[in-house]
């Protein structure tokens, strides 16, 4: 089943592939390349399985029809073990799952990337630029040591890079959303805002999008098990929609109806946890 009729059918059974190439992006972030394509579009996710350990959802950092990349932060049992893998080690992949970012040809887009959200946003920028879009990417991080994909973004044509760090160690001092506000106040105009990053950043983008009446698409993250709409773990209140199939990328109009957005998420047994 494809997500929109134009995408490749999702593989729901994982298959392991050897890691073809590893790039260390920062102290805690790595990019793995696999010599396989799942036909993923920017914003979609795959389930990444480390046999004997666990399986977690991850945004696709790139799928060019020949190779698939994932960029991940070692921040839990599974990703810490994944970070210890070497080239040639086997990792299972299934997907792609969920919705993706959509744009029209020649649109002016502002992309907001927080933390390792820079990886999928690089994928968006690359594909949107091919469609003649003009893309401003606002990459934000706590400090310069956490910034990702800057060189790759700089190398793209029709893409302008804006860097923001909370501590001011590189670029604009403050959040990437504040950097965007400054651009807007300076007269910049955008057809759409796309955002991928921590939920507090998404809340700021959602509010800005509503205030300035600029349509936006946000990538939401919730605990997922199956990835294709069966287990119900990623259902959000009060709509009861599944973020693995109706998301992860949602338009702001829909996002604003999700009352738990920015407030709480549920764990593996369905218990609420406040952000």
């Amino acid at each position: 089943m494809g997500c929109c009729g134009h995408c490749s059918p999702a593989k729901r059974l994982p298959e392991t592939h050897p890691i073809a190439h590893i790039v260390r992006e920062t102290a805690h972030v790595q990019t793995f390349t696999f010599k396989v394509s799942l036909g993923a579009k920017p914003g979609q996710f795959v389930m990444v399985w480390l046999p004997g350990v666990d399986e977690v959802p991850m945004s696709v950092a790139e799928d060019d029809g020949k190779e698939l990349k994932i960029t991940f932060f070692a921040a839990g049992d599974m990703t810490e073990k994944l970070a210890q893998c070497k080239e040639g080690d086997l990792v299972g992949l299934r997907g792609p799952f969920g919705t993706h970012y959509t744009w029209e040809k020649k649109q002016k887009l502002a992309l907001l990337a927080g933390g390792y959200g820079a990886a999928p946003m690089h994928f968006v920028a690359k594909e949107a630029a091919k469609d003649g879009c003009t893309v401003d990417v606002f990459v934000g991080a706590r400090g310069k040591e956490h910034l990702l994909y800057l060189d790759a973004l700089c190398a793209l044509k029709r893409v302008a890079l804006h860097v923001a760090t909370d501590d001011g160690s590189q670029g604009f001092k403050g959040t990437n959303v504040a950097a965007l506000v400054e651009e807007l106040d300076g007269g910049a105009r955008y057809d759409q805002l796309f955002a991928c990053g921590p939920e507090r950043m998404l809340v700021a983008v959602s509010q800005l999008s509503a205030q300035r009446k600029i349509p936006s698409q946000l990538s939401l993250e919730r605990y997922m098990k199956c990835g294709y709409g069966l287990c119900g773990n990623c259902v959000v209140d009060p709509l009861g929609i599944r973020l693995c199939t109706d998301g992860p990328v949602v338009k702001n109009d829909l996002c604003m109806e999700i009352t738990e957005f920015g407030k709480f998420h549920r764990d593996d047994v369905g218990k609420k946890h406040l952000f």
């Binding site: 399985w49 294709y228 593996d268 047994v269």
Partner: peptide, 29 residues
Amino acid sequence: HKGHSNPVIISTEHWTLNAVGVPDAGVEK
């Protein structure tokens, strides 16, 4: 009651195998 680790649900077009392990937060939830 905690369920099993992932993967817990996998499918082809013909069948689905699941071992979610019956996770639930209990009567309070």
